[in-house]
Simulated assay, not measured.
Amino acid sequence: MSISFKKTYKFAVKSALYISLFSVGFISILSYFFFEFNWLFSLTFGVSILVFSFFVLQYRVERFIYRRVKKIYDDISFLDSSEFRNQSITTDMATLTKQVKKFATDKKLEIEMLKDREEYRREFLGNVSHELKTPLFTVQGYISTLLDGAHKDKVLRKKYLERAEKGVERLVYIVEDLDMIGKLEMGDESLELVEFDIVELSQNIMDLLEMQANKKDISLSFDSKYYRPIYVLGDYEKIQQVMLNLVMNSIKYGKEGGSTEIGIEDLTNNKVIVRITDNGEGIEKQNIPRLFERFFRVDKSGNRAEGGSGLGLSIVKHIIEAHDEKIYVESTFGKGSEFSFTLEKVEKASSN
């Protein structure tokens, strides 16, 4: 590292001036009492002392500060600060203070970010363990019971094997979702962009989930009549998964006798926004920012009766962001929620 001094000389000049004034005054007094007083000699002596003191002080102070500042740079460089390693050493205190403060601020932010990541990692591993543990123990319990002799009862054997199969299906479902979200986060999941009618897709989703909605007496419908197709550009299967997850959630957390509506609006000249609105339980305000986190559940009871991997909304967010689009949430606790996302609109020439 090269030395880069900013020579203000303020300290050296003042110190040299004090030494010179004292020396000239002392010599003048001695000359007055013991020798013949000579102004020229006193002035020459004073200037000589001033110059000599200035250079000695300036050099010594710079070397003194440099050695200690270099140690600071070396210590900081040891902490893997590429910014400090690439900078020349300065003994200017204002510049050094700014550099150290910036370094300290950056390191503080880095430490806080690492703490957040560590907390997220612990929470994620705990959630994965919890999600996998329930179906694993279920399967293990039924198989152990069968091995202990229950397999001799044909009725019981079939019943337990069917329940074990459901546990295995849930495990497969969680693993497949984890695999998908991992690919989406790493950008390994490619999109197959095609033009399709979002109205038709929405109708297909409602037809597919009609039976599940009927079980809770929830009506599925459009917010208004759509007489013409609305074409968008996107990955058909992945947008279908987005719609499935959002409508299924509205049914899962909907009220008995409630409703779920799908609306499609022009947002700008080349964008449409798709809205899924329900009058269900709603979401508390403090939970909304965490909705798209992996395994985050609004229901803290741990009840898994409604199924799902806990990754649905996280996958939805990643799919929409992979399309370079936005997803939004509005909710009032006890009144209902609205999830909406944008898609690129495709203008089709009307045929006569």
Score class of each variant (00 low, 15 high):
E347Y: 13
F296Y: 15
G263C: 03
I89G: 02
S81H: 10
Y18R: 08
M180G: 01
S15G: 09
Q286L: 13
M93W: 13
V232C: 05
I288H: 03
T91V: 14
I111H: 13
G280P: 02
L156I: 14
I49G: 02
E321L: 08
I262H: 03
E347Q: 12
L17C: 06
L21E: 05
R117I: 07
S31Y: 07
V51S: 05
I205E: 00
L343R: 02
S4E: 12
S144P: 04
E195D: 15
S53L: 04
S42A: 14
R60Q: 15
K215P: 04
D197T: 05
K225F: 15
D148S: 14
D75A: 08
F295D: 04
I218P: 01
D80I: 09
K348W: 06
T105H: 11
L57S: 05
E200T: 11
M180N: 07
I319K: 01
F84E: 01
L209G: 02
Y231R: 11
K335D: 14
I29H: 07
D235Y: 05
L132R: 04
D235P: 07
R275W: 07
A305R: 10
L171I: 10
I198G: 01
F339E: 02
I143T: 10
K183A: 13
F124E: 09
K238H: 02
I327T: 00
N352S: 11
G263Y: 01
S301Y: 05
I205R: 01
E293K: 11
R121N: 11
N245I: 03
H151V: 10
R157D: 12
F124V: 06
M248L: 12
Y328T: 10
E284D: 13
I239V: 06
V175Y: 09
V139T: 06
Y9E: 07
D80W: 07
P289F: 08
F22A: 10
N204K: 15
I3G: 10
E110Q: 11
D80M: 08
S129E: 14
R170H: 12
L50T: 04
K285A: 12
F64A: 14
S351H: 12
